[in-house]
Design a binder for these strands. Structure first.
Lengths: 231, 231
DNA sequence: CCAAAAGTGTTCATGGTACACCCATGG
DNA sequence: CCATGGGTGTACCATGAACACTTTTGG
């Protein structure tokens, strides 16, 4: 019969944005509304078919930019999902989609908020609606990987701006890991790894002692992906 | 033009076998000879196109069995490789293959040695010839993952039989990690994790004190793959 | 008795955790 | 002067590395 396998690339995109009430930063991710069957009308991860001459990561990057107008600070392949029934469509029972999923970290400044529309919306990562296909589980896995890497790499850098205080860096860790960290110990651990470089500037204007600003040490990789380097 | 993307599943299969001279176990992996262009005649990872109704892991499992007559003790997705030029064939310049690669651990008993043929041969993992496509790099990455997981999981269990001495378990770690481990500390670390259960049998016949036999604690997962469980 | 590996005990360095305490600023 | 977070000091504990030492077998 007309059986066929479609290869698609989707991306779980994370950014930090202030919580609407508390103003504390929390994890958000953009979703797109499906405009065709199956699961028409449901929210889903941004993605689409792989271009015939396009690299996998390039496809993720392109789609990410089309959806959010942003360039990822960090991009990594997450997993290939291919259960035969995961994209089942009763109108096309013999069709099937294998999705190669990437996950990305972006720096969501105010400008990116403007690209929201009826078909693109950011959701808090801990309050995502019921999504199309197996996308809820994919997001769970992406969150697990993000939390894992947060503990032994410097990917937090990808969620912050050029300079930042150690409190801000610690807050990123705390938000992602969902637990508080001792400020004193966190400071020493970060300093010991050499992943940040002190500047001679300070964040003032708060009603407490000014905090020194740091910048990332770009000579240290964001994360260790073994023999793979953007393949 | 006639551009098309083929989706294939390949597997890096590891087993322990005695070194031809020293008789000490070393890592081996089976390769198959390509019988058609491109790279006809070169050795390559076992694999093939994904069946239209076949799960990704099932495809890896099927191919593994066809190649080695074995069932994997451990099977995990490694990575999806999709550079547009990775499978370039000058006779079919517009064709392209995306490979989803798994890696597996098997227990290679004597029976499996019989399936070698002109087109299937086992090679020592540290002495693999120049392979088709990017398969040498894929093996490097699989080895990196294997070594990583060996340090924080109990996948070594998948390379041993039902019962084993702690020396044998330690030898597996040493061979994979390519360094010696202190027997006393190794014993305590393994015992502390509860990943092995002492039996009341001993390995005798060696010219030294008999060593107690242990068995795996099946209530502990071989490795933690997060929210993914054979998806 | 000897060689060799099994198995136990002990010391030391390291890294993380908890927490007391002082510092500098805005209000 | 006080509340608040910035920043330093230190004690404690768990873990792992190094290594001395005893035990039990085959030859």
């Amino acid at each position: 019969m007309g059986e066929s396998i479609t290869l698609a690339v989707s991306t779980v995109i994370f950014a930090l944005r202030p919580h609407p009430e508390s103003q504390h930063p929390v994890l958000w991710l953009p979703l797109v509304r499906r405009v065709r069957s199956p699961h028409k009308g449901l929210w889903a991860l941004p993605g689409g078919p792989l271009g015939t001459t396009e690299d996998l990561a390039a496809s993720a990057r392109r789609n990410l930019h089309e959806t959010t107008q942003l360039t990822p600070r960090y991009l990594e392949q997450l997993y290939a999902f291919g259960r035969p029934d995961r994209s089942h469509d009763q109108t096309m029972p013999d069709d099937r989609t294998v999705s190669i999923v990437y996950w990305a970290l972006v720096h969501a400044d105010v400008a990116s908020a403007g690209v929201e529309s009826d078909n693109v919306r950011w959701f808090p990562a801990d309050d995502v609606p019921d999504l199309a296909f197996d996308h809820n589980q994919i997001i769970e896995y992406a969150l697990w990987r993000l939390r894992n890497k947060m503990e032994y790499s410097r990917i937090a850098a990808a969620l912050l701006g050029e300079t930042f205080t150690l409190s801000e860096l610690r807050e990123v860790h705390e938000v992602v890991l969902e637990r508080t960290l001792d400020p004193a110990n966190f400071r020493r651990q970060i300093e010991a790894t050499g992943q940040v470089v002190a500047t001679d500037e300070f964040r003032t204007g708060r009603r407490h002692r000014p905090a020194r600003l740091y910048r990332h040490n770009h000579s240290i990789e964001l994360a260790d992906n073994g023999p793979l380097t953007g393949r």
